[in-house]
Each structure stands twice: as structure tokens, then as C-alpha cells.
Amino acid sequence: MADSSVPTGAELVAELNDLLALDHDAVQAYSLAIGAISTAEYRDTLAGFRGDHQRHIDQLTQLIQTAGGVPVQLPHLPTGAFKLAVQALGTLGDDRAVLLTFKANEAQVRDKYRRHAARPHGTAVSTILRAAAADEERHYEWVQGALERMGVERGGLIDTVQDAVENIHARAADALESAGRRVAEAAERMRPGGG
């Protein structure tokens, strides 16, 4: 008998679709950052990270289809637009400004994957979520290190303000996305064959 705490059916599909939309959000934000960053090395690194998000999209799409669900192929509404706007503001500045805004978006992605990877899931889902969480941890650590090389000291004024922005950004996005996930789960339950 399956552990009742392991999400299945509509709950699993809604959870995976929430992460899928998160990766769609990230691909758009990465595209803006890549287009705005002037340092070729940073551009190349961000392009590689965007590739990680595309891989997550492909893997999550497959998991959702295997679970009998319909994968969403859109960013979160309305938080995806908000995240894109935050990243767009960063493109008005130099590389440091681009990476500071990028870091705020990446923190929410990292933390969300971390939470979902820690939940109980079947083996296939757990493997993919843990690998994606490790990717997000690596992305965040890279941007933190790049900012330090640009003179943004951990615990300094810019870093402290950035941490506050990250926390506000993440809480607002998580609350809205959680509500959207509940709606998606209810819709999935009503879909023929959506369990």
C-alpha cells in the first residue's frame, strides 16, 4: 500500500505543473539577463543554466504526462510577469544590477525546488526533483560568487538589502503560486481521467 503522504493523481500533477511553470518563468528571466549582460563569461554561464531549466521543463513534462496529466506550457500567472518585470528592471543597469535582480529570482526557484525535493515522492519524481534542486543550488551559489567578485560583500549593505528583496519577492511569489496550484489541482480533479 502506498504511503498516503506521497502525492499522486491530481495533487502530483498540480505540484509538477507548478514547478514546470516556475521553470518557464526562469527561462524567460534568463533570456532577459543573457541579453543584457556584457561579460561574455557570465553570458555563457547563464546560457548553460538556462539549458538546465529547459531540461527541467522536458523532464517535468514527461513526469506529468506519465501521471496522466496535461503539462502547462506557460509561466506562472501573474507572478511570471512580475519576475520578468523584476529582471527587466535589472537590465537597465550594469552587469552587477542584472545579477542582483537575477539573484532574487533564482533564490525563489532554489528554495521552491529545495522544498519540493524534500517531500516524499516516488523514485522517478524524487530523482528528478533532487537533481533539479542541486542545479538550483549551483546556480544560486554561482551568482552569489559572481556578485562577491564584483564587490558585493556578504553581509554588506547591498547584500543585506538584496536579502530583504529576495525574502519579500519569494514570499509574495510563493503565496500566489500556492493559490494557483490549489486551483490547478481542483481543475485536474474535474478533468475526465484526472483523478
Rank of each mutant, 00 (worst) to 15 (best):
Q73L: 07
H56P: 07
G93E: 06
Q144S: 09
Y42Q: 14
R119H: 01
S38W: 13
T39Y: 11
Q108Y: 07
L32T: 10
Q59K: 12
D94W: 12
Q73Y: 01
L16F: 04
K103I: 06
A67E: 04
E41T: 03
A146I: 11
G122Y: 09
G51W: 05
P71D: 10
T45G: 09
G145Y: 07
T45W: 15
L99F: 09
A134Y: 11
Q59L: 11
D111R: 00
T127Q: 04
E106F: 11
Q87D: 10
F82L: 05
L20V: 13
G80Q: 13
E137N: 10
L22W: 12
T123Q: 00
G48P: 10
V125H: 07
N105M: 06
L20D: 05
D23W: 07
T66I: 12
Q28M: 08
L100N: 00
Y42K: 12
A26D: 02
R119T: 05
V143L: 02
A97D: 05
V109Q: 03
V86P: 03
A21P: 14
N105I: 05
T91P: 08
A132C: 02
R130L: 15
L129K: 05
A36V: 04
D18N: 12
A29W: 05
L84V: 09
L22M: 15
I128S: 06
A40P: 15
L99N: 04
A33N: 12
A118M: 12
A67P: 05
P120T: 09
A47Q: 05
N17C: 01
R130C: 14
A40G: 13
I128E: 02
I64P: 10
S38T: 14
Q87A: 12
L12I: 09
A14F: 02
K103L: 13
D18V: 04
R55S: 00
L74Y: 14
Y113V: 00
T61Q: 00
H139S: 15
D44P: 04
A29T: 05
L89H: 13
E137V: 10
L60Q: 02
L100R: 04
G90F: 01
A146C: 14
L92E: 01
E11C: 04
T79Q: 11
G48Q: 06
E136R: 11
G93W: 04
T101K: 03
L32D: 03
R119L: 06
H139R: 14
E41A: 02
R130F: 15
A146Y: 06
Y30Q: 05
Y42V: 06
G145I: 13
T91R: 08
L19K: 07
A85V: 14
L60E: 10
F102D: 10
I128R: 13
V109T: 04
T45S: 15
A117V: 08
V72Y: 03
T123H: 02
S126W: 02
V143K: 00
H76C: 02
D95F: 10
A131T: 15
G51K: 03
I37E: 01
E137M: 04
W142P: 01
I64Y: 12
H116G: 06
P78F: 11
A36M: 09
D111S: 12
V72P: 12
D95G: 08
I57D: 11
L60Y: 06
D58K: 05
Q108K: 04
P71Q: 00
